[in-house]
Design a protein around this nucleic acid. Structure first.
Length: 681
RNA sequence: UGCCCGAUGGUGUAAUUGGCAACACGUCUGUUUUUGGUACAGAAGAGUCUAGGUUCGAGACCUAGUCGGGCAACCA
């Protein structure tokens, strides 16, 4: 829950305004209304956190309402998954509701609309009606059935309900305005015939209400005070209100629809239709594939409820469309797991390390902290021996001083164990390293308190003792799409951007025996590698870990830079350019606040600009002549710099004259003064 | 050619409702470190889409424009 001092998002502001206008706090009631036709995703989490967050903040009930008006798409499986996900996120709904609970009431109201002359049964084809609807720029024409008698409409609607007609032959429409600039007001559909069993009402009905006719009324029936949905429903608001005008009792609470922007995440897609396509095309293994942005996918991947709630809060609620960087999501999960994950060791890409001076056949149990971030989190034992696995990339035969890992002749610390020194390597006939031989400082055991154990060495490696190693499968995931916004291209289908290497399975990784007892939902940090969690497919004799997210890796970031430095021959020249650029930039920076300065500070600023202007070319200064009129400070800075250049011998031209003239005409006195000064000199 | 939204550092959001543009992520420096993680300290990066207007004062208000999004499913 938020602190009182934090700012309100615009939805919270609306609630605050309603409260300030006299709405009793007890009347506040919210709802989260998923359609059970797919799994919840991280975008829904925004809505869930918003609605349930509002409920927590104002101590108001929040209903979970399944918007189940279309039996051809909806299934019980989805209802169950949605409930599981919301509970997992840590939210409690007040009442579990279904739009289908209101079918009878909705039907009765429809009959009333017909009696009031505000609805009619149309028998035209979908195509004919679409044509009559017109376009956003031209009005529609009225249906030939629009003015049928009430009796005929009542009879037809009754027979629709009785199952006398086939799907597509008859529908019930509201009679509103075929010329409305809002397409949704052009006699929208209220009921259609669907001869399919409904997951809750079975075969009781063969006519089903449309979303627009259902949603507002459901809100009304549940006394929802604020009905929050996404932006694409903005134009539905007029219809939402029209229906309430027809049926609502003014003595009852009238729900209010408000809209916010959907959340998009970079490098993924968010629509249920597209996620379904990924599932159906077997691009992913299912709705809960750890690469999916679904709540269940993220959970299986190792995300925690806290991290997702934190992410939702950090992303905010607005009305503008945007793409949130996955880096923020990853930050949220790292932050949580850093604090809470148990530290262990595992080697993903093993190479054998032999300690030549360690007593042959000896084994000892060493002590490892469970979590250095939590005081009192305890320790566990790690077996050590003379033959270990270490990570292949942690060894180089010879390396520069920036490589803090193992190489011949160099010392590193084995985490929780000894300091070792690289001595030699054994290679196969192809030249691949098969064994690394090293010696070990037997006095340097971690925690032994000896002087040697306190020695500082540059690097620390993780390891696993070969005789004790437990084999495990590791699944590493990369972004599912190679494009930042895969569904934003008009000319390309999002499926074209699927990353072919989004899943990397390591069959033979080795982990410390402590992990033999890992349970589902346990969170681990494989030290120096990342965060891992047991996958649901794992068994006692076949451990499978999902990599949730890697640790931040500033070493990996350095690598490309090192390569770059080598290839960058004209580095000096580039440096010079940068300096030149920074002179003009520096002038701009000082100028920005120029008009806020006075006295000594002003004089200093002016002197600095003049000084910097010595190193500026006319070509750099000229574009700034177009600086917007209101950016007076920048124009003053440019004027001063121009004075310096002219003094140095720059020839006046028409551009310069125009800029000075404009300065003389300006209403800012400082600017006028600078312009005059140039003319005097 | 209509109607409705929106536009603030690279990204996502703030700005106490008209008073020196802030926070987070990301990036870059440094310190600490038995995780090249964490923590800590610091830096760079925006004149708030453009042009006018109102005002002592505009990111905010007004007008016009530009750009982006939504609106013509028997989907929700």
């Amino acid at each position: 829950m938020k602190e009182g001092s934090e700012s309100f998002n615009f939805i919270e502001q609306i609630v605050e305004q309603d409260l300030a206008a006299g709405m009793p706090k007890e009347q506040l009631r919210f709802r989260f209304p998923p359609e059970p036709n797919g799994y919840l995703h991280i975008g829904h989490a925004a809505s869930i956190c918003l609605n349930f967050g509002l409920g927590e903040r104002y101590n108001a009930p929040v209903n979970l309402r399944f918007d189940d008006t279309n039996p051809s798409k909806e299934e019980q499986e989805y209802v169950d998954a949605i409930k599981r996900d919301i509970e997992w996120l840590g939210f409690k709904w007040a009442t579990e509701c279904y739009s289908s609970d209101y079918f009878q009431q909705l039907y009765d109201w429809a009959v009333q609309l017909i009696k009031d002359g505000k609805a009619y049964v149309d028998k035209q084809s979908a195509e004919a009606m679409a044509e009559q609807k017109g376009t956003p720029t031209s009005p529609g024409v009225e249906s030939p059935h629009r003015n049928q008698s009430v009796e005929e409409n009542l009879d037809l609607f009754e027979r629709m309900k009785a199952g006398e007609f086939e799907p597509g032959t008859h529908i019930l429409r509201a009679k509103i305005d075929m010329a409305s600039p809002n397409m949704l007001m052009r006699d929208p559909l209220l009921y259609r015939i669907v001869k399919k069993a409904h997951h809750r009402t079975g075969n009781d009905w063969c006519i089903y209400p449309m979303y627009d006719y259902t949603h507002g009324q459901s809100d009304y029936l549940e006394s929802i005070s604020h009905s929050i949905c996404t932006l694409e429903f903005k134009s539905h608001r007029e219809l939402y209100d029209w229906f309430l005008d027809q049926i609502a009792d003014p003595n009852n609470l009238r729900p209010k629809q408000r809209e916010f922007a959907r959340r998009n995440l970079s490098y993924t897609v968010m629509s249920k239709r597209k996620l379904l396509e990924l599932v159906q095309t077997k691009t992913v293994a299912g709705w809960d594939d750890p690469r999916m942005p679904t709540i269940s996918g993220l959970r299986r991947r190792g995300y925690t409820p806290d991290s997702i709630r934190k992410f939702s809060e950090a992303s905010g609620i607005t009305k503008r469309d945007s793409v949130t960087d996955v880096a923020l999501l990853e930050y949220c999960i790292r932050e949580d797991l850093n604090k809470n994950a148990t530290r262990v060791m595992g080697v993903l890409d093993p190479v054998k390390l032999v300690i030549t001076n360690y007593p042959e056949g000896k084994t000892e149990m060493l002590v490892a902290d469970n979590n250095p971030e939590i005081e009192g989190s305890g320790t566990h034992e790690v077996p050590f021996s003379g033959e270990l696995y270490i990570e292949k990339e942690d060894f180089k035969e010879s390396a520069g001083s920036k490589f803090f890992r193992l190489s011949i002749g160099k010392e590193v610390r084995l985490k929780n164990a000894y300091i070792i020194k690289g001595e030699s390597v054994v290679k196969d006939e192809k030249g691949n390293i098969t064994e690394i031989h090293c010696t070990c400082d037997l006095d340097s055991r971690s925690g032994s308190g000896t002087e040697a154990s306190e020695r500082k060495v540059k690097g620390t490696l993780h390891w696993v003792s070969i005789p004790h190693a437990v084999k495990a499968e590791i699944r590493e995931y990369d972004r599912l799409f190679l494009d930042e916004a895969p569904d934003s291209h008009a000319d390309k289908n999002f499926m074209e951007f699927v990353n072919p290497n989004s899943l990397n399975i390591i069959k033979e990784a080795y982990v410390e025996p402590f992990l033999q007892n890992a349970k589902l939902d346990d969170k681990f940090q494989f030290q120096r590698l990342g965060y891992f969690t047991l996958d649901k497919e794992a068994s006692n004799d076949h451990l499978i870990f999902n990599k949730t997210v890697g640790l931040k890796d500033s070493w990996a970031k350095q690598q490309p830079k090192a390569d770059q430095a080598k290839s960058n021959q004209p580095a000096a020249q580039q440096n010079q350019n940068q300096q030149q650029r920074s002179a003009i930039n520096e002038i701009q920076k000082i100028s920005k606040k120029y008009t806020n300065l006075s006295g000594d500070k002003l004089a200093t600023a002016r002197a600095s600009i003049m000084n910097l202007a010595e190193g500026v070319e006319y070509e750099e200064l000229q574009p700034l002549f177009n600086t917007a009129a209101k950016k007076v400070g920048t124009r003053i800075g440019v004027m001063i710099s121009l004075g310096v250049l002219l003094k140095k011998g720059l020839i006046r031209n028409s551009e310069i004259d125009a800029f000075i003239e404009a300065g003389l005409q300006d209403k800012d006195e400082m600017l006028v003064e600078e312009a005059k000064r140039i003319n005097l000199e």
